[in-house]
Design a protein around this nucleic acid. Sequence first.
DNA 1: CGAGTTTGACCTGCGC
DNA 2: GCGCAGGTCAAACTCG
Length: 189
Amino acid sequence: MEEQETPPPFPPPPPTLSSTNPPYLFTPSLPSTLLPNTNLETLMCCNYNQNHLYFEQNVAETITDQQNIAKYADEEKVENIKDKRRGGRNRKTTIPRYAFQTRSEEDILDDGYRWRKYGQKSVKNSNFPRSYYRCTHHTCNVKKQVQRLTKDTSIVETTYEGIHNHPCEKLMETLSPLLKQIQFLANRF
DNA sequence: CGAGTTTGACCTGCGC
DNA sequence: GCGCAGGTCAAACTCG
């Protein structure tokens, strides 16, 4: 019996990130294979989902230090307890929060989304201020906090709150002409 | 002129 | 109730 070629997964699984080779990038890449009837909407959706996958992968991959894992786990528990006291739901079921650390000279990581800074605050036991950003997309309520670590000034800690409900704008700017060209060629043959 | 940044004031929750 | 710390607001400012 002839062995059928299994189609590549779509979207492809996120790449394995090296924890020994910072800085970590989570810029989503193009799907390795475009289905024949891929339209802009599908691709946007795919990239958004990939973004999320990559993002979660990064959280898992970059917080490798056991103390950090414990720290973030504890913070999450504390936040959940606080929410319950306020009569709210468990935070994990309401606003997802993700934190990760990146070795970078730049405070602001280019994650493809557009952010507007709405505050900056000096925090206790830290030599560096914490910056507060909101996604500029009108329907998106995602926030992020950026802070450089005192103990290792080469590391920037970024905390995201919420999940984007729109595709990555910068990515779409880059991909739109490319996709149009692919669709044009696909229609010709 | 619009979008983004800065920064002091204000609000809220928490521990004592 | 008070003070502290973290988070947000909003007016003034900057920049392209």
